[in-house]
């Protein structure tokens, strides 16, 4: 069964707000890991307060992924370091997502 895996890489300080956003748009769960890297907004390195990045992964229905992506694009892209990508994944328990 196919579901969509949406991956968001963004500033650690947004964590709580994004969790709320994701839930509002109907995702049933998410996974967050610490991340670091470099992009158009410079090197983002963890270690000092909330200067690092986080990587949020959400497995959900395609329509939910689209909704979340549009919301994030509208509300965060302009001012925050954020990238987002998605692809189809195979899951064994589609009812869970």
């Amino acid at each position: 069964m196919q579901r969509t895996l949406l991956t968001i890489i963004t500033e650690a300080s947004l964590e709580r707000r994004l969790i709320a956003d994701i839930k509002t748009h109907g995702a049933h769960g998410y996974t967050i890991t610490e991340a670091q890297g470099e992009g158009s907004r410079g090197v983002r390195q963890p270690g000092f307060e909330k200067a690092g990045n986080i990587r949020i992964e959400i497995v959900c229905e395609a329509s939910v992924a689209t909704q979340i992506a549009l919301w994030l694009k509208e509300h965060y892209y302009r001012d925050y370091a954020m990238i987002l990508f998605s692809h189809e994944v195979e899951v064994l328990r589609p009812d869970k997502f």
Binding site: S13, E49, K50, Y76, R78, D79
Partner: peptide, 13 residues
Amino acid sequence: IAAPAAMRMAVPE
């Protein structure tokens, strides 16, 4: 510590 975190949230521009 406190100001950067709060300003990042409240004044993102």
